[in-house]
Computed example of a mutant assay.
Amino acid sequence: MPRQRHKAKVTLPKGVHRVVSRGREYFYFQLGRGTDHAGERIALPNDPHSPEFWTAIRQAQGSIGAVPVDTLGAVADEYLLFLKSAGTITSGTFEQYQHSLRLAKTAWGSLSAKGLRPVHVQAVMDRMAATPGAANNFLSSMRAFSTWARVRDHIEHSLTEGVKPYAKDQGHKPWTPDQIEAALTKLTGVIRRGVILYMYTGMRGSDAVRLGWTDVDEGGFAKTTQKKKRDVWCPIVPELAAEMATWEKRPGPFLWQEGGRADGHRYTRKLFSKHFAEERDKIPELAGVTLHGLRCTAVIRLRRAGLSTGQIGDIVGMSLATIERYCRFADRKISGKAALQTLTRTSEEQNCKTTQNSKTKT
């Protein structure tokens, strides 16, 4: 039986009570509970981690008197509600914003939003120096939050002006031919199938886990990308077609969980990445590879096949700048090899002696 995960405990403010009935949690707001002067009992949302929960608390508190609504915590909750209602970002991106703003609320939740300055954001960045990727995600979320809050007069100054992200490393590297060979020969089942989809389509994980037989359209996959909401048509190359010929035709996505109580259930991007990592760590040749590296591998393969940057973008749903970044090493390597061939040929021509240019003895 899989271990049940529990979210971090939340400290409830005065007047908020938790009740467990028939195995379910319920929350409500009531001042003076159990006394002769008990106030009105107001039901609250059942998830204390959601922005709706804290907004409902402030509304309930406001019903019995004025309460401050200009704290960083209150403004952050309003921003999260705005993102959720706008529906312009994916659930994964929303979770990233939610996590980052949870860090902000932990640090300054009870402080006035208008009193915050970039020095406060920099202090959090400094504390996160050991995890630069997470720190940069936090800074990115705070930039977006700061822009939204400033034009609505929740804050008076940018919260991120002058705060610099940590330098990026080399990023996700493409897989080598030996790594691809090891994956195809040593991985099995749905994990191998997923690697094949990632490698031959170049799609993001959030799109690859949703691919299924119903997406096949005239020799390719027709799909609207989850993150950018961009319509793409990805050709099914012969290598992928040969693999697909062995797959069962059934409703739903190509990638489904195998075994246990979750057997047959859909994969999320995060869960598939987790299961892939578990299998990858058993194969020494795959040490350090990432699924996102296969996206880079696919782009380089398409570039070497002679496709333009625009054509590749239409296939994988990627920005032109990202494609150029992914191809920078491959292009330099190809150019270097071409230059070597030119230099070698020129050298051979210079050293070549013919009857016309060589001296002959008479």
Rank of each mutant, 00 (worst) to 15 (best):
G171T: 01
P51L: 10
T362E: 14
D169S: 10
R304F: 05
H99G: 01
I191S: 04
H6G: 13
G310L: 14
E349A: 15
K270Q: 15
V151C: 07
G259I: 07
L302T: 00
F272Y: 04
D153T: 08
S146W: 00
M203D: 01
W256A: 15
G15C: 06
T35L: 07
S308F: 03
G205D: 05
L286G: 00
E258C: 08
V20W: 04
G252K: 02
L320C: 10
S308C: 08
Q4K: 15
D281L: 05
L111C: 10
L343M: 15
G313L: 08
P45V: 04
D70P: 01
C327K: 03
R295Q: 07
G212M: 05
S91W: 06
R22C: 13
K337P: 02
H49G: 09
L72S: 04
R127D: 14
R261T: 13
E239C: 07
T93V: 07
Q98G: 06
M199V: 04
K186V: 07
V124T: 14
T90A: 05
E181V: 10
S308D: 07
R152T: 03
A262M: 15
G73W: 01
E285Y: 03
T11S: 13
T90M: 05
V216C: 02
F272V: 00
I57P: 00
F94E: 05
S63T: 07
V16I: 05
T297L: 01
V151N: 08
Y79E: 05
R261V: 11
A339G: 07
G162R: 02
A245H: 04
V151R: 11
M125K: 04
A321Y: 09
P253M: 08
K337A: 15
T355C: 13
R33V: 09
P284E: 13
M199A: 09
I89K: 10
V195E: 02
L139Y: 03
R3A: 14
E78L: 06
Y267I: 04
I42M: 13
T71P: 00
R295F: 06
L81F: 04
P251D: 10
T309G: 14
K186F: 09
K282I: 02
G171S: 02
P177M: 07
D36C: 09
M244D: 03
G15P: 02
